[in-house]
Amino acid sequence: MMMIGTIRINVIVASLAGLFTFALSIGNNLLLSTCLKSTYSFLILFVLTFGFRWVLGVMIGAEHSAGGASYANHTTESSVGQSLDLTTPDEDEETRELMKANLGSNNSLLSNEAQFSPLNPPKLVTKNNLDPEQLAGALRRMSED
């Protein structure tokens, strides 16, 4: 049987609950009634904190015992995937040759499949010599609609 923390935790939690109850109750009750309610609040939270600490101790104790067993089983297995190597390998001559060979084969495939041709969009043509009467007529038709 294991408990987390000390009795000081119980006293702190129960005192805070008692003070909170006293502060909220003093405006509506007599002093004796307020003190009695605060004492009840203190005692109830003091006991409940023991229960809460005991449950946490049992849960953590079970977690430690299960964790210890899984750790013992884990050490017997291989250590594959347990470490991370963040270093990049040195580029040796073989790696460079492989990269050149791959790039060369990709370029030849692309050149056989399709040749590059730039996009030739049609040119925009502006009309410089427009009849002013036609422009005025178009403007009148647009304003009527």
Results as ranks from 00 to 15, higher is better:
Val58Trp: 06
Ile4Val: 15
Lys37Tyr: 08
Glu113Phe: 15
Met2Val: 05
Tyr40Lys: 09
Met59Ser: 05
Gly5Pro: 02
Glu144Asp: 12
Leu103Met: 05
Gln115Phe: 09
Gly67Pro: 04
Pro118Trp: 07
Ala69Met: 15
Asn129Trp: 03
Thr34Pro: 01
Arg8Gln: 13
Val47Ala: 04
Phe42Trp: 04
Val55Glu: 06
Leu119His: 15
Ile60Arg: 13
Arg96Trp: 12
Pro122Ile: 02
Gly5Glu: 02
Asn29Ile: 02
Ile4Cys: 09
Gln115His: 12
Asn102Ile: 00
Leu19His: 02
Thr88Arg: 15
Ser143Thr: 08
Leu119Met: 11
Glu113Leu: 15
Gly104Thr: 07
Glu63Cys: 00
Phe22Tyr: 06
Pro121Asn: 10
Leu139Lys: 09
Ile26Asp: 01
Ala72Tyr: 07
Glu97Met: 13
Val47Tyr: 11
Ser105His: 09
Ala66Cys: 08
Pro118Gln: 12
Tyr40Ile: 08
Met2Glu: 11
Asp131Val: 01
Leu119Tyr: 15
Glu91Trp: 09
Met2Pro: 09
Pro121Asp: 12
Glu113Asn: 09
Ser83Gln: 13
Thr95Pro: 07
Leu16Glu: 08
Val11Asn: 07
Thr21Cys: 04
Ser108Lys: 12
Met3Asn: 04
Glu113Arg: 10
Glu133Asp: 15
Thr49Tyr: 03
Ser15Arg: 02
Ile12Phe: 05
Thr76Glu: 14
Thr39Lys: 08
Met2Lys: 08
Leu109Thr: 09
Val80Lys: 15
Thr34Ala: 04
Arg8Pro: 01
Ala72Ser: 07
Ser79Thr: 04
Asn128Asp: 11
Ser70Lys: 08
Thr75Cys: 03
Arg140Met: 04
Leu98Thr: 04
Ala17Lys: 03
Ser105Gly: 04
Gly18Arg: 03
Glu144Gln: 12
Trp54Pro: 01
Leu86Glu: 14
Asn10Gly: 02
Thr49Trp: 01
Leu31Ser: 10
Ala72Val: 00
Ala66Asp: 10
Thr39Leu: 10
Glu144Met: 05
